[in-house]
Computed example of a mutant assay.
Amino acid sequence: MRELRGDEADALALAVRPDYAPFFAFARASGIRLRECLLKWSEVDWNARRITKRGTGGRTVSAPITDEIEAILRRSIGHDPEHVFTYVALRTREDRVRGRRCPVTFSGVKTQWRRLRARAGVEGFRFHDFRHDLGTKLLRETGNLKLVQKALNHSNVKTTTRYAHALDDEVTDALSVVHANQKSRKKSHNDDRNVG
């Protein structure tokens, strides 16, 4: 499991092609799988502030439309009547015309992701690691495995327990505080005995 470290998120943001930026920003903000990020407008419910679509294994996948996700989605309004994320074709081919917007595809994203990582100098971070990054940060922030399970659309909480490593540093820090407090109380107790 891998999360973005140091300035890797900034490096990716600076290196992304502008027309692909909304797609990658959405993937990072939502934590949903690559195929599930290929949204259609019919899957976006502005009133309920939810995205609902068919996911892996035919399961229904749902994600909230947070303020950040709403801003990302709104940047794509008007680009295509059916597909949320599009890119500008750089050359004319049988199904594309140079300069026109085309729907982002699974294979296109994989190619752009490979190029993006190379330009940004980010190694060892897979597209799927956006899920790990979000899940780890969410667990670290809330300490709530059930919440992370729901956010990542895991059907079984056992899958979510892989993110428990995020709390390791917090456990270490808490134990250090307990030990420091015990030493302090012991020293204070000894000082009290020496005075009496």
Rank of each mutant, 00 (worst) to 15 (best):
R2S: 10
L4G: 11
L4H: 11
R5H: 10
R5N: 06
R5F: 06
G6Y: 09
G6R: 12
D7Q: 13
E8K: 06
E8M: 06
D10H: 07
A13C: 09
V16H: 06
P22I: 07
F26N: 04
S30D: 08
I32S: 05
R33K: 13
K40N: 13
D45P: 08
W46E: 13
R49I: 07
R50V: 15
R50E: 15
I51R: 10
T52Q: 15
T60I: 15
T60R: 14
I65Y: 08
T66F: 01
E68G: 04
I69R: 08
L73C: 12
L73T: 11
I77N: 02
D80R: 04
D80F: 05
E82S: 11
H83T: 08
V84E: 07
V84D: 08
V88A: 05
V88C: 05
T92L: 01
T92G: 02
D95C: 03
R96T: 03
R96I: 00
V97M: 11
R98D: 02
R100G: 03
R101Q: 12
P103D: 05
V104E: 01
V104F: 03
V104M: 06
T105A: 11
S107P: 04
S107Q: 12
V109S: 06
T111N: 07
R114Q: 10
R114G: 02
R114W: 02
R115N: 11
R115S: 12
L116N: 03
A118C: 00
R119I: 03
A120Y: 07
A120P: 06
G121I: 04
V122E: 06
F125W: 05
F130N: 11
R131W: 09
R131C: 13
G135K: 08
T136P: 01
K137E: 05
T142E: 05
K146A: 12
K150A: 15
K150Q: 13
A151C: 12
A151K: 07
H154D: 08
N156H: 12
T159C: 01
T159M: 14
R162A: 02
H165A: 02
A166C: 01
A166V: 01
D168R: 02
T172K: 09
A174N: 04
L175R: 01
S176G: 15
V177D: 09
H179G: 07
N181P: 00
Q182W: 09
Q182R: 15
R185G: 07
R185H: 14
K186E: 15
N190W: 12
R193D: 15
